[in-house]
Computed example of a mutant assay.
Amino acid sequence: MTDKVFDNNQVSIAGEVMTDFEFSHDVFGEGFYLLDVSVSRLSNSYDIIPIMVSERLVDVKADLKGKYVEVNGQFRSYNRHEDNKNRLVLSVFAREFKVCIEDLDAARPNYIFLDGFVCKQPIYRKTPLGREIADILLAVNRPYGKSDYIPCICWGRNARFAENFTVGGHIQVWGRIQSREYQKKVSENDYERRVAYEVSVSKLEYLEEY
C-alpha cells in the first residue's frame, strides 16, 4: 500500500471465508460484492468482518467458503437509509485480495491504521467492573472530497487520554477491527440481532487542531 492517497487508511486482515459473494452495487459497469471473513483473535475468539470486493479482483461466482484469504485495503463507511433513519454501514474495501491454498499463519491477521479528525466529542465511561472506555468517531478523508466515519474504542490509559480530545483534533490510531453482536429493539416485544463494527485501539497519537 504505497500509494500516498491511501496512506491515511490502511487495513490488512487474514482469515476464513464464511459466506458466498453477495451483490452490493455497481459503479460504471464494475460490480462490487460483499462476503464475510472470520478473523481469529489471540483469545481464541474471532471477529466476523465484511469485505467489499470488485468482480475485477476475484471470481465472484467461485465458492470460497472455508478457504483462507488475505485482504489489504481500507475501512470504509456509508449511510444507509432505513426506518426513517440513517444507519452507518462499515466494511473493508479490498484493494488486494488473495486466496490462500491452505490455512495461514499471518504475523498480523487483523491490523488497521487510521489518520483522521475527531468529529464528535469522545464519550468516556466505566464498566460496572471499573474498566475505562472511551468512544471516538473518527473522520478519515478520502479522495474527491469524501470521508469515512469510523467508530473507535479506547481502553485504560488511552481512554483517559482520549476523553480530553476536542472536535476537530487530528489523531492517528493503530489497532484491529472488531465485531460485536447486540439486540436492537424494533417493537414493543421484538428484538433484532445486529452486528456493530469498530476499531479497538491499541495505540493512538494526538497531533494537532484544525
Rank of each mutant, 00 (worst) to 15 (best):
V39P: 00
R157L: 14
Q172R: 14
I48R: 13
G116F: 09
Q183K: 13
R76Q: 09
F97Q: 14
V92P: 00
V11K: 01
D26A: 05
L104N: 03
R108L: 14
L104I: 10
L42A: 12
V58S: 07
V60A: 02
N141D: 14
V89E: 03
D135I: 06
N72L: 10
L57F: 05
V199Y: 04
V99W: 05
V27A: 08
A196L: 08
Y149T: 01
V11S: 01
E96W: 07
D3P: 02
F21N: 01
F161M: 13
Y124S: 06
R56T: 11
L114V: 01
S202N: 06
R41C: 01
N8G: 11
I51W: 09
C154W: 08
F32N: 00
N84H: 07
V118L: 04
D83S: 15
E198P: 03
N44G: 02
N110G: 02
E55K: 09
V53Y: 00
V27P: 02
E30L: 03
N72Q: 12
K146R: 09
E132F: 07
F21E: 01
R157Q: 15
N9W: 10
S24W: 14
I177L: 15
R56H: 11
T166D: 07
Y210L: 07
Y124C: 01
F23M: 15
E163T: 01
H170A: 04
V195Y: 06
R108H: 08
K85M: 06
N44K: 10
Y68K: 03
D190I: 07
S202Q: 04
N9K: 04
N189C: 08
C119R: 01
E188H: 10
E208A: 13
G145Q: 02
D26P: 01
R108I: 03
F21Q: 06
G145Y: 00
I48E: 11
M52E: 10
V71Q: 13
N141H: 02
S24Q: 14
L114P: 08
S43A: 10
Y149R: 02
F21P: 00
F6Y: 15
A106M: 05
L64F: 07
S202V: 11
L35W: 05
P143A: 13
F117M: 05
L104A: 04
A107C: 00
A162H: 07
N141L: 02
F32W: 11
D7L: 00
